[in-house]
Structures are given as C-alpha cells and as structure tokens.
Design a protein around this nucleic acid. Structure first.
Lengths: 253, 253
DNA sequence: GCAAAAGTGTTTAGCTTACACCCATGA
DNA sequence: TCATGGGTGTAAGCTAAACACTTTTGC
C-alpha cells in the first residue's frame, strides 16, 4: 500500500449534544442559534471542540453544563440526584459536513427533566427548547418530501433524528424514561413521558401494574401529591434497576 | 469563555474493526500482530487512519477489505450476497490511549461468515481468528482480577468487549445472526450461531418453531443438506425482515 | 439396527390486553 | 355533586418453556 501512515491528515474533533426533555406533553430538544457563519442565524445542536487534555465524555459533560447548567449524572451513582443522563450516541465524519475544515463530531445524547429557561453559552446568541416534530418535520418528512429548507445547520437534523430514535427505543427495555422525570414523580407522570416520547396513548391501568410490578424499578417515597388533580398519587423515586425485563411494549402505530 | 475555538487542537482519526465470526462453535475475533512500537509484537484490532477524502464508513469498509478481503454489505441490499455486516460501534478518545499522539478511534463492528485463513494486510505481521474468551479472559476476568497482562494493545480489550456485547444483544431483536451464516444455511446452523455467541444451549424444537414462524425472517430455498448429519435439513436464506418481533429470548445465565 | 439431527404436537405457566369497577380529591 | 386522575380485579388470548414423539438420513 503506497499510503504513509505517519502522514495522517489532521482533523478537528467536536462533541455535539442532543439534549432532550419533555415539556407540555411533547418531546423537545435544545437548540442554539448560530452567531457566525456558516449557517449564521440558523438553529443548531449545542456543541464545541474537544480540548487537548479532555476525554470525549468529559467534553460532552462540560458542554452540557455550559449550555444548560445541568451536571451529567455519574452512571455508577445509585439513584438520580438531580442530574441528567448522558451517553455517547454516534460519530459523524463526512468529509464535507463542515465547509470550513474536516470535522469529526462525536454526538452525545442527554436526557433531562423539564427545566426552566435554557441559558445561552459560548458563541450562541440564544437557546430554546423546540419540539422535535417541528425540527424534524412531522416524522419522516425527509422520506416523503426530500427538499424543504432544513431548519438545522450542518447534518444536525440527522444527528437529532438518531438521538430521538435512540431514546425511543431505549426506554422500552431500560429505566431511562425516569431521566425525564424530577427526582420524585408519580406513575402518571412517568406514563406521560412514555406517551410524549412515543407519541401514543397508553392504558393507565396496565401501565401502573407494569411499572409497580417490576421489582427494583420504582421505589415509593411514602409521599403523595395531587399536582395532577384527581385522587392523590403516590410519589416514587427511580429504583436501582436499569434494565426493564420484560420490556415495555411500544404499541404499533 | 476564554477559549478560542479557532485554535482547536489537531487530532488523528482512525477506524478500528471488531470483526467477529463463529468458528468451531465458538465466537472469534480477528486480531493482527503489531509490527512496530508501541505494543510491538502484541495483538491488536485491525484498523488504520481515516484518509482526508473518505467518510468513516468508507474507511471502515476499506480496512475490512484490506484485512480480510471481505466486502461490506450494502445495508439497503435485499439479501446477503456474500458480504459482511458492518456498522459503527462507538468512539474512543481518551487523551492517553495512544502514547504517540492524540488519536480518536471510531470503532466499527463487522460480522462475517466463517472464512478460510485471514490474510495480513498493511503493517501487520500476521493475522488470526482468536476466541473472544481467550482475548478477554473468560468473561469478566477484568471485573474479578484487575491486573493481568493484557493480551491486546491500547484500549482494544474494551473495544472488543463493547463489540461483543453489541453483537450479543443485537441478535436478540434483529436478524443479525444470519450475518454469521453462509448464504444458505439450516435452522440448526443458525441455532448453533446463537449458542456460540451467547454461550448457552437452546432447545432445538422451540428454536425451530420460533424462527420458521416469524414471517419474513427465513425464506426456504427448496434445497436440503445433510452436512450436519442426521435427517436432511431444509436450506434457508435470510428474509428481508431485519427486526425480530417478538425477540429471541436470551436464557439467563 | 442404531445414533444423530430435523421437525411436530401438546401441555402449562406467565404475560399482555381490554375493560369493568372502585377510590380520593378539588371545584 | 361531578369531573378528574389514581388504582384494583378479572377474563381472554397469545407466547414461551418443557418435553414426548415421529421422521429421515449415515454408518
């Protein structure tokens, strides 16, 4: 092979964040408005360069704090302590994905409870929570009607779609949906998370039996609340179990 | 923020390959012997630098051909045509994972039918198929006994472990196990793939009913074979279905 | 005939679904 | 009192697990 491995081409490496939350019964993603070219004025996923001395997860956690003030949760911690779930999603490195230079972006997925207002950080002029269906065009507009003006800069629509799909499939067989809830939550609130992420309606009775009947999934705190109206509901914290077996079944659309 | 984004640090970007196959009823990975420092003489996963003009999947496919002669399968192709399944696995970028320079490696997972002998390519002195339990030390030796001399260079033991775990979990709910089989195969051969990858024994009767009863999963070719001994078995090709629903259940260990 | 692998049938247990029904609160 | 959401009971239907049994080859 006439290729000299010592003459490797230099790359810029960034982390991009798909930060998801559930607000007003709809799945939303954090987007920032770009303050400089390319794609100036367009919405983009938060992100930034990986520094010379930090690892990828560290860079993602730093960006998360800078953009939202949220601290990433230690995965080995026993129970959610007010932080966000953070995991690596996938890596995007098409040669022309950034017109300025060769950039490889390691995308991460963060799930957070509903937050007040996002704060802009770094070179972003503004930040907001946007429903993913607005950003992606009602689920598969990309397949139906190829060329509409993209809302998101770079290849961020694809990254967001991959992150949403990861979240949708992962709440089936894990306790990840609790990452969208506050520390203490009711079964109904958890069910509304599933309904918002999947875009379906679930039977409240069967859902209740399922999640309370899975050992280690939910731990009752003893308290109750009526913040949703109706009969007082028990409050729960997420239990130690991270795998949901048998899984929650996503109804067919 | 006092950080200048235009002064981003340069990275080398590589692809590393976890190439898995099933040989003699055991899950094996392709490893190459390193011909130069660091880790000279140690085994490593095949891989190499991403070139300036190629995307990540293209670099992985190129390395796969160079190391094995296998062509990656077009994911949109209707049925396996003698190629290998190839997908992105995860990205590894700890600052000190390579002592020479800052390297971010985008690992890919490839699944292939049993092949004759691997051919060495590039700067590798030799290549071989090694049982993953030999490379990783009987499933969780890392957890039991932290410090034994690692067989694999760099952080490749962790990458391999992640790839094996991905394969193990993904054959549960997808038709991926057929990527380990030749173009035409019997139900028993497919079952032995599951048994090798999971390291368990499955009931042949229930397995048969399950895979033949799932519409679109297997397509009979009409032929039969007695290459496994006993009563002649029907030959099948992989059907178009990529998702296995309901999933194959992995017995608890 | 005998061993070995391929298939089929049947029973039982567990789980999902659908839905009737009751409970506890705020307005 | 009524609307609202929380929670329990129950019967029908599907699935997987376990295993007895038949089929078809090679030796």
């Amino acid at each position: 092979m006439p290729y000299d491995p010592s003459a490797f081409p230099p790359f810029a490496v960034t982390v991009d964040l798909v930060v998801l939350t559930v607000r007003r019964h709809s799945l939303c993603a954090l987007v920032v408005r770009r303050g400089e070219p390319p794609f100036q004025g367009r919405w983009a996923l938060p992100g930034g360069f990986v520094r010379a001395d930090e690892d990828l997860a560290g860079a993602a956690a730093r960006e998360l704090v800078e953009e939202t003030g949220l601290h990433a949760l230690d995965p080995s911690a026993p129970a959610p302590a007010g932080g966000a779930h953070l995991e690596q999603l996938a890596t995007y490195g098409d040669p022309d994905r950034d017109p300025r230079m060769r950039v490889v972006s390691v995308a991460h997925l963060a799930l957070s409870p509903d937050l007040p207002a996002p704060r802009a950080g770094g070179d972003a002029q503004g930040a907001r929570w946007a429903p993913v269906e607005d950003l992606l065009g009602q689920e598969g507009a990309l397949a139906r009607e190829d060329e509409q003006p993209a809302l998101l800069a770079f290849d961020h629509a694809r990254i967001l779609a991959d992150g949403v799909e990861r979240a949708r499939s992962k709440i089936e067989y894990s306790s990840l949906a609790t990452a969208f809830c506050p520390q203490e939550f009711t079964v109904g609130e958890l069910r509304r998370v599933y309904e918002a992420v999947w875009g379906v309606a679930l039977d409240p009775r069967n859902f209740h039996r399922k999640v309370t009947g899975t050992p280690g999934f939910l731990v009752p705190t003893g308290g109750t609340t009526t913040r949703q109206g109706g009969r007082p509901a028990q409050l729960f914290r997420a239990g130690g179990a991270t795998l949901l077996n048998p899984p929650m079944l996503r109804p067919e659309v």
